[in-house]
């Protein structure tokens, strides 16, 4: 998929997350990176019709639940999601992960992210 098109589609998914989700706001940088990684990876897997359950733990179940909700939301809001190829989904979701890491962690202005204790 053309990069600009992928970026544009990624932006739509990002919009959905900012308006509907809370998982990306955990209060520490390391925590946000894990949330982004686990939830967006599983979302990508689900959208590509792949197995998204890694282990039989409550933590994994949790990330999977967030991913399930997220991909349902994506599909509900953007009909193109269901019609996009696996490769293109991977491309868009990877961009999305990059984008979330950027805004929520690396370029974040939130000064609390680096505090040691909760």
């Amino acid at each position: 998929m053309d990069k600009n098109v992928a970026e544009e589609k990624m932006a739509q998914l990002e919009w959905y997350i900012t308006k509907h989700c809370l998982w990306q706001y955990n209060s520490r940088a390391w925590d946000r990176l894990i949330q982004n990684e686990r939830i967006l990876t599983k979302t990508k897997q689900l959208l590509r019709g792949e197995n998204a359950k890694d282990e039989d733990t409550t933590a994994d179940k949790y990330y999977w639940s967030e991913a399930m909700s997220l991909q349902e939301g994506f599909k509900r809001y953007f009909p193109w999601v269901a019609e996009t190829s696996k490769d293109d989904i991977a491309q868009i979701l990877d961009l999305l992960k990059e984008r979330m890491d950027h805004t929520m962690v690396h370029a974040s202005l939130n000064q609390e992210l680096v505090k040691e204790h909760y």
Partner: peptide, 17 residues
């Protein structure tokens, strides 16, 4: 969120917002 974060760390209970 503090108690949820600590319950996750200490007891492995996931936090779902």
């Amino acid at each position: 969120e503090y108690i949820c974060d600590e319950l996750r760390t200490r007891y492995g209970i996931p936090r779902m917002d």
